[in-house]
Amino acid sequence: MSSRFTNILIPVIAVFLGVLAGTIIMLVSGYNPIAGYSALWNGAFGDIYYIGEVVRQFTPYILAGLAVAFAFRTGLFNIGVEGQLIVGWLAAVWVGVSFEELPKIIHLPLAVLAAAAAGALWGFIPGFLKAKFRVHEVIVTIMLNYVALHVTNSIIRNVITDGKERTPNVAESASLRSPFFESITDYSRLHWGILIALACAIIMWFLLEKTTRGFELRAVGYNQHASHYAGMNVNTNIILSMVISGAFAGLAGAMEALGTFGFASIKGGFTGVGFDGIAVALLGGNTAIGVVLAALLFGGLKIGALNMPLESGVPNELVDIIIALIIFFVASSYIIRWFIERISKKGVK
C-alpha cells in the first residue's frame, strides 16, 4: 500500500472509530445514537443559517491549524497559538477602533496586517529564545499564552477603554462583516475572512512545497544537524518558522476580532481556538489541504454539537467525549498504521 494512501486513510479511520465509539457510548448511556447524530448533522448543515455558522467557525480553525502545522513542519511545537491569537485579536480591534475616517481599502488591510504582525511578534519571542539560547519553545509558548491573556485584558480595561469590560465595536471600515453573506445565510455571522483563511492555506502550501526557503524550513524540521552541515542557517529558519506560524495565529485572531465579534472583551480564560488548532493540525497531517478538511470537520462538530442537547437530549459532554476520542485515535495513529500494515501483509500472503 502506498504511504500516501495510508496517510489519508489514518485520519479517516480515526474519525470513523471516534464516531463508532460515540455510538456505543450513546447506546450504553441510554440515548438514541441515530437521533443524536441527526441532531448533530441538522445543527451543522440542516439550515442555511447553520452552514453560515459552520463556515464562520471553520475560518479561525483553518488559520490556527495552519499556524500549528507550519511550526510542526520545521520541527517546532507551537502551543502558543492561543496567545498569538489573542494578541492578534487585540491588535486588529485596536486599529479598528482607533481610526474613524480611513477608507475601507486602507483601514481593513491595516487592521488585518496589525493582527498578523502582533501574532508574529508573539511568535518571534519563543523562536528567538529557541534559536539563541535553546530554550524549549513549548515552555516559552505556554507561559506567553498567560502573558498574552492578562496583558490584553489589562490593555482593554485601562488603555483602550476606561475601566469597561469590552471595547467599542470596530469602525465599519475595518469590519469583515458582510451584509451580503448575512442576507443569504439568514443573519449568520459568516464574513469575508473565509477568503483570507483559504488564501493562507494556499500560501502555506506554496511556501513550504515550492520555494527554496520552504525546502530549508522542512529540512530543518527533518534534521537540524544535517541542515546545518548542508550550509543552511538553522537559527534563522527556526525564528522564521515561529514568526510565520505566529502571523497565521494572529490572523486567526483578526477573524474573531473583525468578523465574528467586532470587538474585544476581557477574557476570564482562553478561547480554546488555539488549542483546537493543535488537534486540527494533527488530524490534517500538518499539510495545508489536510488542515482545511480537518478544520471543516471540527467547525461542523463544534456548531452541530450545540444542537444535540436541545434536539435529542444528548448532553454536550458526550459530544466533547466523541471529539476527544477522535483526537485520541489520531494521536495513536501508530496503532492504526500497525493494523493496516498487518492486514495488507496478510493480503500478500
Binding site: M26, S29, P315
Partner: peptide, 17 residues
C-alpha cells in the same frame, strides 16, 4: 477507552434524565 467514555457520559447525562 469505551468503558471510560461510557462512565463519563453517564455522569454528564444523569441530571437531564
Amino acid at each position: 477507552v469505551l468503558a471510560a467514555g461510557t462512565i463519563l457520559g453517564a455522569c454528564g447525562g444523569g441530571g437531564n434524565e
